[in-house]
Simulated assay, not measured.
Amino acid sequence: MDYTAYSDVEEGRAVVSTSVVRFTGVQARPKTDLLAVEEPLEIQLGYSSSGQRLTKSISVTMRTPGHDCELASGFLLTEGVVNDVIDIADMHYVGDSAPRDRNQSAILEIESGEERNTILPYQPGRNTLRVELNPEVRISMANLERNFYTTSSCGICGKASLLALRTVCPPRTANRFSIEAALLYKFPELLRSTQDVFLRTGGLHAAGLFDAKGALYSVREDVGRHNAVDKLLGAALLADQTPLRDRLLMLSGRASFELLQKAVMSGVAMVVSVGAPSSLAVRVAKDFDIILVGFLREDHFNVYHGIEHLTGYIEQGGEIHHEITN
């Protein structure tokens, strides 16, 4: 199966125009503004159980259309449903006249003569995506639903969330990632410069994968920060690049438990965010040995775990401890 067929970039559905009144001081003038599109995506799972082929809806998320197959794949990876690209047999939109040809690109073709960013009309059937697992993949729907609940960290204690994550996470090897501290300062601008929809709308989160030399490999955007990460990690899964032991995950916002959970499940070695980490995110970083950096700005950042993996810095103001306190 050619998994490159699932890049499904529908740029025309990512933005829409609207009329606004722009105020400058007390002067008002009509203008046209661009908005990031937000639409629901239902993810359905096709799987085998007791000799039967079953279908179940497992998630509905509000997302920016585009990269939907990557979003679904990343979600299934980070929730422990799939571990490898070979677990996925097929993906198609429910409502399509026929499943997608595995040998054709899923990129939406825009008619000749139109610009790449032309606003496309709403397309019925493009908001429900079915992921068909290979028959050999065994899942327990009861365990699956319980994992979705416990790893969401909503309404339960952090201890239960960490326990659930330890239960479903794949084996992790020793973290051997190392990076020069000064390189981190370049990442926010590199990430912003590739955010096409954000530059036009100012309304999207982004996630990017970097290597230890500071090279940016891929970027994904979405109105939901979790979705941006799922799209990014799903692209890596479909390209058979996981686990991402030699990659750094850059976040345009804060680092929450859920995002560190996704880093754990994909094998990411380091997470860097421009915002603050939560207390539970720091716990995950410590428990699973993920290098965690927060509050990355033009001239400063905080290291919450993994200082020994950074090089090229000068210690000032006392001894720097390699382990943070609880």
Rank of each mutant, 00 (worst) to 15 (best):
D2H: 05
Y6I: 07
Y6A: 06
E11H: 04
G12R: 00
G12F: 00
A14I: 03
V15Y: 02
V15T: 14
S17R: 11
S17V: 06
R22K: 14
F23R: 13
G25M: 03
V26D: 12
K31Y: 02
T32V: 07
T32N: 08
D33I: 10
L34F: 04
L35I: 00
L41F: 09
Q44I: 06
Q44P: 01
S48A: 15
G51V: 12
Q52H: 13
S57W: 07
S57P: 01
S59N: 12
S59I: 05
V60E: 05
T64V: 08
G66E: 00
C69M: 11
L71Y: 02
L71Q: 02
L71G: 04
G80V: 09
V81G: 00
V82W: 01
D87L: 00
D90K: 14
Y93H: 09
V94D: 05
A98C: 13
R100M: 09
N103P: 01
Q104V: 12
A106N: 11
G113Y: 07
E115C: 03
N117H: 07
T118Y: 09
I119T: 13
L120K: 14
P121I: 02
P121A: 09
G125T: 06
R130A: 12
R130K: 15
L133D: 15
R138F: 11
R146F: 13
R146P: 11
Y149W: 11
Y149E: 13
S152T: 03
C154V: 10
I156F: 12
C157P: 01
C157N: 11
G158R: 10
K159P: 07
A160C: 14
S161M: 08
L162M: 13
L162T: 02
R166H: 14
T167P: 01
T167Q: 08
T173W: 08
T173F: 10
N175S: 14
S178E: 15
E180K: 11
A181I: 13
A181N: 06
A181T: 15
L184Q: 00
Y185V: 11
Y185G: 13
E189A: 15
L190W: 02
L190I: 06
R192F: 09
S193P: 04
S193G: 11
D196V: 12
L199I: 11
L199W: 06
T201P: 06
L204D: 05
L209F: 12
K213M: 13
A215N: 15
L216K: 04
S218F: 08
R220P: 02
H226V: 11
N227T: 15
D230P: 09
L232A: 04
L232P: 07
L233W: 00
L233I: 00
G234Q: 04
A235F: 05
A239R: 15
A239E: 07
P243G: 04
L244W: 05
L251M: 05
S252H: 09
S252P: 02
A255S: 12
F257I: 03
E258R: 15
M265K: 01
G267A: 14
A269P: 08
V272N: 01
S273Y: 05
S273F: 05
G275S: 10
A276F: 15
P277D: 06
S278C: 04
S278H: 10
S278W: 13
L280C: 01
L280T: 09
V293G: 01
D299F: 11
H300E: 08
F301D: 00
V303F: 07
Y304S: 00
H305P: 09
G306T: 02
G306S: 04
G312E: 12
E319P: 12
T325I: 05
